[in-house]
């Protein structure tokens, strides 16, 4: 049985350059992730601040033996954003595409497909594989039964499942942080940096529900998919994606590694993760084809 890989997904939030540098230095030095995504996915306006840190981050991670992938914008729109996207996907470091726009510049280079691209079936997965996709992190709402069908049909492709973190649920051209604070998107004052795990959105009856992160809407609940290596393999899963939050991501990675290596039971892993102080309640309903916000015992 091949070892299940652990991917640290891209940071979805507006973290300062200093925070990003320190975070990835810690990941390089201490974590067990074998693949680490860098780069800005959510908002092109954040790029001028984070862009300068990536060369150093990539070098640090690569020196530590990590495979590095550059994640790219989910909704590129301005000329500047599209140009930056084209440059990123045609560089030396493998890119993750999060919008069809990126396909134009790949020209046969290997790439990975992010969860914000709609791959719901084996035929579209095969389509991307045929154009050079090495792995696909499937859409968060896809049940494990569909993951298994896709993985089986596309043997050469690594099927990756979003296993930890607030679920990326929606994108808009409207910035909800700006709207909430009465600002225009064009003069947003980068106010989303106040909420490094996203800002909770509750129902008017006080139920925990969603979270906003600039133009992105996430779940309030934190996805916790805790399979044993056997369960993951049974569904053809080759990698688990761990999505960065402000809590101790080195320990999160170590916990998943021990779970997958059989040194920890799913129950122990869950307890260990809950002790780290998650930003929301654990959820996993999507994996069994149910309500995304629900938490079920997975067989």
């Amino acid at each position: 049985m091949a070892r299940i890989g652990l991917t640290l997904g891209p940071c979805l939030f507006n973290w300062s350059a200093e925070r990003l540098l320190a975070f990835y230095r810690g990941i390089a030095e201490n974590s067990v992730y074998d693949r680490v995504h860098v780069g800005e996915v959510v908002c092109g306006k954040r790029m001028p601040f984070s862009d300068p840190v990536w060369p150093e981050v990539i070098e640090t991670l690569q020196s530590a033996g990590k495979e590095v992938v550059i994640s790219t914008l989910a909704m590129p729109s301005t000329v500047r954003e599209r140009k930056a996207l084209a440059e990123l996907v045609s560089g030396d470091v493998m890119a993750e595409i999060n919008d069809i726009t990126a396909l134009a510049s790949l020209e046969g280079r290997p790439f990975t497909v992010g969860p914000l691209i709609n791959v719901y079936n084996e035929a579209s997965a095969a389509f991307f594989a045929g154009r050079g996709a090495k792995s696909i992190c499937l859409p968060v709402e896809l049940p494990l039964s569909s993951v298994a069908v896709i993985a089986k049909a596309c043997e050469g492709l690594e099927a990756e499942v979003f296993a930890f973190g607030r679920l990326p649920l929606a994108l808009s051209s409207r910035c909800y942080h700006a709207r909430l604070h009465g600002l225009h998107k064009d003069s947003c004052q980068f106010i989303c940096d106040r909420d490094p795990d996203g800002l909770a959105v509750d129902t008017v009856d006080g139920q925990k529900f969603l979270a906003i992160n600039g133009i992105q809407t996430l779940s309030d609940g934190v996805q916790l998919f805790l399979p044993t290596a056997g369960e993951a393999s049974a569904h053809g899963i080759k990698r688990l994606r761990i999505s960065p939050h402000t809590l101790d991501m080195v320990t999160v990675g170590a916990t998943y590694r021990r779970l997958l290596d059989g040194e920890m039971s799913p129950t122990e892993a869950k307890e260990s993760l809950l002790a780290l102080g998650l930003p929301g309640a654990p959820v996993n309903g999507y994996l069994s084809g149910g309500v995304g916000a629900s938490q079920l015992e997975l067989a």
Partner: peptide, 21 residues
């Protein structure tokens, strides 16, 4: 739709039914 169409899982998060599917 205020969200980018076909890229919104809010409804399935609450109901389990994906508009895309």
């Amino acid at each position: 739709c205020p969200m980018a169409e076909g890229r919104c899982a809010l409804s399935s998060y609450a109901t389990g039914k994906s508009p895309n599917l």
